[in-house]
Amino acid sequence: MKTQEELTEIVRDHFSDMGEAATLYVQVYESSLESLVGGVIFEDGRHYTFVYENEDLVYE
């Protein structure tokens, strides 16, 4: 099982292909040891929320 830090790095790496991230945040109260819930805000103003669970990243 991966730590939240490892899950955060996986998510950060995925979003790095989409541009320069200004902020990546984790909603600790919705996350667990198995999943990471949060969002990313890019330098150009785009904002996505995400759920990373079971090696699957879903974002909108």
Rank of each mutant, 00 (worst) to 15 (best):
D17H: 15
Y25V: 06
S31V: 10
E43I: 11
V11R: 03
T8L: 15
E5A: 11
E60K: 11
V51I: 11
D56I: 15
V51N: 02
L7G: 02
E20G: 12
V51K: 10
T23A: 07
D17M: 14
V58F: 10
Y25S: 03
S35Q: 12
M18K: 06
F15A: 02
S31A: 13
E20S: 12
S16K: 14
V58A: 07
T3R: 07
E30P: 04
F42Y: 05
F15K: 01
E9A: 13
S35Y: 15
E53D: 06
D13Y: 12
R12G: 03
E5L: 08
E34A: 12
E6Q: 10
E20Q: 12
T3F: 06
V51A: 05
V26I: 13
F50P: 00
L24N: 00
V40M: 03
M1Q: 09
Y48M: 04
T8E: 14
E55Q: 11
G38H: 03
G45D: 01
V58E: 05
L36F: 08
L7E: 02
L7Q: 02
Y29G: 04
N54V: 06
V28N: 08
S35H: 09
G39F: 15
L24M: 07
D44E: 02
D44T: 05
M18Q: 05
K2W: 08
R12F: 08
H47A: 05
L57P: 03
F42V: 01
S35V: 14
L36A: 03
A21L: 15
Y48I: 06
I10G: 02
E55C: 13
G19M: 07
Q4N: 05
E53H: 10
L57W: 06
I10S: 03
G45Y: 06
I10K: 06
A22K: 13
D56L: 15
D44G: 04
A22L: 14
A22G: 09
N54Y: 07
H47V: 08
M18Y: 07
E60D: 06
E55K: 11
F42C: 08
Y29M: 04
L7R: 03
K2E: 01
F15R: 02
E34G: 15
V37G: 02
D17L: 14
L33P: 11
Y29T: 03
Y52R: 01
Y29I: 05
I10P: 02
E60H: 11
Y59R: 02
V51C: 10
S32K: 09
D13R: 15
R12E: 03
T8S: 07
E5S: 07
T3P: 03
E6H: 06
H14E: 03
F15N: 01
V11W: 06
G45C: 10
E60G: 06
F15T: 01
V58R: 13
A21S: 09
T8Q: 08
E30M: 12
V40S: 00
E60C: 15
D44K: 02
L36W: 07
E30A: 09
G39R: 11
I41V: 07
H14F: 15
R12Q: 05
V11L: 07
D44L: 09
D17P: 10
T49W: 11
V51R: 10
Y48T: 00
Y52C: 13
D56W: 14
F42Q: 00
